[in-house]
């Protein structure tokens, strides 16, 4: 019975850790998707001058995952009559990201108006800021993962010891 309980705790710990790692991977993928989308957005504004409604719809279609859903929601908000900053902020509410990238994206909402120079600069700066954030996460990742693994292993081991 005790062995069974210990096994359950070990499985739970593995499952919990796996969930946590998946969430982190999804977060990294979302930020990578957003960076790529913002870079494409800046390029389309500067080179093709694609109007914003078409550009957002295209990003919504071409990008997968949460980033794609975000741009799709912004395009839908714009279509339903919201101003772009408002549609952007509303779509942000459904995005699950840590505070730093959310702040960058919230600030970008205000920068999406004005002439080509202003919009291009705002989008590029936001993409750069997200890229810096993603790089910082990548640098911290091995250490954070080791620490996380150790923490989950120690906690489950402690529970098993207490149980036995």
């Amino acid at each position: 019975m005790k062995l069974m309980g210990a096994l359950c705790i070990a499985c739970g710990a593995v499952w919990g850790r796996w969930q946590q790692l998946s969430a982190q991977r999804r977060r990294r993928e979302t930020v990578r998707g957003l960076i790529a989308a913002l870079r494409q957005m800046a390029e389309e504004i500067r080179i093709a001058r694609t109007p914003m409604p078409q550009l957002l719809s295209c990003l919504g279609r071409s990008r997968g995952g949460e980033a794609g859903r975000f741009f799709h929601a912004v395009a839908a908000g714009l279509e339903s009559g919201h101003a772009l900053p408002e549609a952007w902020r509303l779509a942000l509410a459904d995005l699950s990201l840590p505070d730093e990238p959310m702040t960058v994206l919230r600030e970008l909402a205000a920068g999406l108006s004005g002439d080509e120079e202003a919009v291009y600069r705002a989008v590029t700066l936001a993409a750069d800021a997200l890229e810096r954030q993603a790089l910082a996460w990548e640098r911290q990742r091995p250490e954070a993962e080791r620490r996380g693994n150790a923490l989950w292993f120690s906690a489950s081991a402690l529970l098993v010891i207490l149980l036995i």
Partner: peptide, 8 residues
């Protein structure tokens, strides 16, 4: 349409 750059 929030695309002044396209209407330049």
């Amino acid at each position: 349409d929030f695309s002044r750059y396209a209407a330049m």
